[in-house]
Design a protein around this nucleic acid. Structure first.
Length: 424
DNA sequence: TCTGGGGTCCTAGGACCC
DNA sequence: TCTGGGGTCCTAGGACCC
């Protein structure tokens, strides 16, 4: 059996845990550059605000009655770690699926105690972190998702819902759930299913797996088996080493200055390299891309990318940045207003098992020096704050710097941002 | 004026080989 | 007019997730 724990309106819940004044009013958390709404409180959902809406397109009356916050990933990430710790304490095995969702294996607990146990977990998380989670319990991940949805939507369940695979209750829920609300099925697949007469999750469960596989591929066939209660989907735990590492951002404002773009690429490459070293991998190739603002249709558009091979495979910020800058130079064109750049590290392998290139001679002395330098850089940046040590000349107020105008304090990770409470 | 970022897996089709 | 067949590997793009 699986339990899926899903935090309600996670980013908003984190903000509210530290700022009770945000309770009961529409709250939206914004994407980078304060552009789009990426998390909404129930009150904001009730106003009809859709996920991903650009903030500036919202009607005025909604803007006026709502509070908008820049995203504070430091805070959300730290709170997520605390929740995961609780889960590891209270269940046999935890697979972290995303920042606000984890699947827990409930092997070893008698079936009739599962719900009580999950209520305990839920209460503990609330007491220790102030975050409300919903819990769905079922024999497969897709059914657990369905259960979690019921736990959220049906108040009388009080946040926890356990589903038997073949019960009437489950059948009713599946019949009420449109296919495109199912995990793994979005509107493209849903419209294809509709043409085949499959409108809800129950229809899909009854469908012929072979037929679905031939028409829509193995991914959708697996969903049928999951709906029937068989476990058919494996997820990658978030802690597993990544196969690609990407860092990209929209700039705070568009720029036609090459140095601005070069700086962005340098900063993104450093970030990506840190992530690479943290998971103890090396990259054999790097992709750089740049693009103008595609929303400004009246301005000339340009977008390009290039893959730069890295030989030997490396995790060294300086080597990676040299490659990234070479790539950038070859695709940069003057006369455009750039809005976004990004760096992707590809063909990652474990550093330990790294293969030497043909004819490569490793320079142990030089390698060891670089290794130490990177180690010191990472350590300083980890203990003294991101960006304590950077490569290249420092520039301030560059165009690529993101706009962050409404960020809450990083309550749990930065002492100096704690609000000061004055004693009388 | 302001329009996110970072991932995964699967599939189809081309290149290439014998 | 005739124009093999089957396999592997790689890549780009589609679809989906939060």
């Amino acid at each position: 059996m699986y339990a899926l724990l899903d935090s309600n309106n996670y980013y908003v819940s984190c903000e509210r845990a530290f700022n009770p004044r945000l309770e009961g009013i529409p709250v939206g958390v914004l994407s980078s550059n304060d552009g789009c709404i990426v998390a909404r409180s129930d009150e904001m959902k009730a106003l009809g605000v859709e996920m991903g809406t650009p903030r500036h397109l919202l009607p005025k009356h909604i803007q006026q009655q709502s509070v908008f916050l820049s995203s504070n990933y430091c805070l959300y990430g730290d709170m997520a770690r605390r929740i995961t710790e609780i889960l590891r304490m209270m269940t046999a095995h935890v697979e972290v699926y995303s920042i606000d969702e984890s699947f827990c294996s409930l092997i070893g607990y008698p079936t009739d105690t599962l719900e009580t146990h999950c209520r305990n977990i839920r209460e503990t998380i609330y007491q220790w972190t102030g975050i409300r989670v919903s819990v769905g319990i079922a024999s497969s991940k897709v059914l657990a998702k369905v259960a979690t949805r019921a736990a959220k939507k049906q108040p009388w369940r009080d946040g926890v819902c356990q589903l038997e695979t073949d019960s009437e209750e489950t059948r009713q829920l599946l019949m009420k759930q449109a296919t495109n609300d199912l995990w793994g099925i979005a509107h493209r697949t849903a419209s294809k299913l509709e043409l085949m007469g499959i409108k809800n999750a129950y229809d899909l469960r009854q469908a012929d797996p072979k037929l679905i596989r031939s028409k829509l591929g193995v991914v959708n066939e697996r969903i049928i088996w999951e709906l029937r209660g068989y476990s058919a989907i494996q997820i990658e735990d978030m802690d597993h080493p990544r196969q690609r590492i990407m860092v990209s951002r929209s700039f705070g404002r568009t720029t036609g200055i090459q140095a601005d773009v070069a700086e962005a690429v340098r900063v993104y490459t450093s970030r990506a390299a840190e992530k690479l070293r943290r998971q103890k991998s090396v990259a054999s190739a790097l992709l750089v891309f740049i693009r103008t603002n595609s929303f400004h249709t009246s301005s000339p558009q340009y977008s390009n990318r290039i893959v730069v091979p890295l030989e030997p495979a490396t995790d060294d910020t300086l080597a990676l940045n040299a490659a990234a800058q070479r790539g950038l130079q070859s695709i940069y064109r003057r006369g455009f207003g750039y809005q976004k750049a990004g760096v992707m590290l590809m063909d990652l392998q474990s550093k330990q098992h790294r293969q030497l290139a043909l004819g490569e001679q490793s320079d142990y002395v030089e390698d060891a020096k670089r290794e130490r330098l990177m180690g010191v850089m990472d350590k300083l940046n980890a203990t003294m704050g991101k960006g304590t040590i950077k490569i290249g000349l420092p520039r301030s107020n560059g165009a690529s710097q993101a706009k962050v105008n409404h960020r809450s304090p990083r309550y749990t990770t930065h002492w100096n941002e704690l609000p000061i409470i004055k004693a009388k």
